[in-house]
Write a protein that binds this DNA or RNA. Structure first.
Lengths: 352, 352
DNA sequence: CTGAAAGCGCTTACAG
DNA sequence: CTGAAAGCGCTTACAG
């Protein structure tokens, strides 16, 4: 019982007594083959234990691998801790559905050494760049040289690369207006990180100016359009834990306590609410909290007032743009609109 | 400015005035090439905008694609909602690190129609099967025919396929013993789903016997070794929300209230704790709660007593088994041990 | 240190 | 409906 090498299409053809071309046609169904021949070929395949055409040879011959790369800016674990990214991924899967392509996870983290499969050598037909990483420029350049069609989600990748984004600034402005119209004037912000180091702490002009995170900057700018001098805290990540910490810092001192907090994500908002509960501050009676994302925060017992962004649609649009690029078209950039959902975490400030 | 076709290694070689073999060697560094020649080749590549060898051709020639498939039992979103799976994925990434391989996401969901990249046609060098899906058998058979080395995490895939698992039964037994030793006798369980339909509700013998979920069954069996008649609720998923619902059902009636609840995941445990808080039941004074997993539940303010399973190590072991298989070795199955972490959610039952 | 040759396994015009 | 031929782009023994 020696290990026989995997049979090839040529072996199958020989055993079936047909040519390789005919055997190929019998498998792909892309040409006219008589039923009798088809059966002979499949019988031969079954007898030899042939499991179908080798995808490596197919992709060389066809010039396509059937794989779409997703370039994450961080390591896999970090990316998947963010519910919004997961929804986007799901949307991408949906968007490229008609391609039947697989999703290859790639990260941004510099060179893939040696014979590693990185952005500069992955056998992908197209790529979706997720998030505006500082490395975006380099990634784009490599992909351009390789001639691999790309789409960017939330990040400006330059000419020829469709950008899928949302109205971060305007949406936040609308949320802020809603708070202002409720009567709030003492408002603070909890932002997403501004830099790759994920520096945590008070918002400083240094951090703001050095920002490499468009999303955080734009959302802050939107809040400033309504509350020009608004300030607050920078969280180290989008998580309940970070929101809790920032919330404690903002709410600790009763004399300087805001009546409303604008959080740049729902997870941060959930953390702020937890901080308020800890300190015996009633939400929304004594503190209004606004989120961003519109995810369902597992375990949160409030109906969060938030800006609902279409994460899945965003991913789907990116996927569809990939399909369109591969069809030779030039898809346009898309900017989605987020919708203010008024839940039970906002109310007029307590007067007195 | 017409679109010129992508240059090939042959083009580069021609322009550099060397043979294709030499150009290849200059790129791969796997043969002796003079520095002068190397420079000529790289200069020619730069001039032509050659971005490096085509990975499709490389993988046909070398017989390897540099890609490892991860077969999830559910759609991408569902899989990534589970923190344990994400940690495992991270561990897999780590374990195959030395390969420099990319991770291709595949799902179990039947045939990939047409020219889709599915389990039966993905250009992967090896595969990690995650979770014990009812389809596991079919997937394994397809991979066996294709000659693709596979590793299974938490699922019995049969001969020749190394299995990476944890001591679900024994670990739960140890947790249950701890509760018994504290003095608990009125104990209930909140389990993970038993079937593909994720049926939610009271534990019935019908559900138990029809189980396709080894993990849920084994953990329940472990609890029964200490509390033979223990019963409880089946959750529809591993989430705080589901734990909350199950917790409410178990705690609603003061006359039949348990003094301890064994949850089959930390998320479920967090939900149970939330239900207790809602009902004004103090944890751990009036109710002890035991979890499983040892993840950090974002936002949970308790130090959960739980069985810490080495999720990352599990993934890493699977990744290492893949490396070993690709090296021609025959790695052994591994069963990891979970460790009881005593936090602040368990205490002796209130006497009186 | 360099080159000529073969071939990885398949698909696709092109004839017949 | 079927077959012979070329070739996708590369790498790897093998000579020299």
């Amino acid at each position: 019982m020696s290990e026989s090498p995997r049979p090839t299409l040529a072996d199958v053809a020989a055993r079936a007594g047909v040519s390789a071309s005919t055997a190929s046609l019998a498998f792909s169904g892309s040409g006219p083959v008589s039923d009798a021949t088809k059966q002979k070929v499949h019988a031969a395949a079954a007898a030899l234990g042939y499991a179908g055409p080798d995808p490596r040879a197919q992709s060389l011959r066809r010039g396509r691998s059937g794989i779409v790369g997703v370039v994450l800016e961080e390591r896999v674990r970090a990316a998947f801790l963010d519910p919004v990214k997961i929804q986007m991924l799901d949307g991408i899967t949906e968007g490229i559905g008609s391609l039947g392509a697989g999703l290859l996870l790639l990260t941004d983290t510099g060179e893939a050494g040696g014979n590693a499969v990185g952005i500069e050598s992955a056998p992908v037909d197209a790529v979706v760049l997720v998030g505006c990483s500082p490395r975006l420029g380099q990634s784009v350049e490599v992909l351009r040289r390789r001639g691999i069609p790309s789409v960017a989600i939330e990040g400006d990748a330059g000419d020829g690369i469709p950008k899928i984004s949302i109205d971060n600034r305007e949406a936040t402005r609308r949320g802020a207006e809603y708070l202002r119209d409720l009567g709030h004037t003492r408002v603070e912000v909890v932002t997403l990180p501004f830099d790759a180091a994920r520096t945590r702490g008070p918002i400083t002009s240094e951090l703001e100016h050095g920002s490499t995170a468009e999303t955080a900057s734009e959302r802050l700018a939107g809040a400033r359009e309504v509350f020009p001098d608004v300030t607050g805290r920078v969280a180290g990540a989008s998580s309940i834990e970070e929101g809790l910490e920032a919330g404690r810092a903002l709410l600790a001192d009763p004399s300087s306590r805001p009546t409303a907090i604008i959080a740049q994500s729902d997870l941060l908002a959930a953390g702020v609410i937890q901080a308020a509960e800890e300190l015996g501050i009633a939400v929304p009676a004594e503190l209004s909290v606004l989120g961003f994302d519109g995810i369902r925060v597992d375990g949160l017992q409030h109906d969060l007032t938030t800006l609902v962004q279409p994460s899945v649609a965003k991913g789907r649009a990116a996927g569809e743009a990939v399909v369109s690029l591969l069809a030779g078209d030039t898809p346009r950039s898309v900017c989605f609109t987020s919708v203010l959902h008024v839940g039970d975490t906002t109310a007029p400030p307590r007067t007195g």
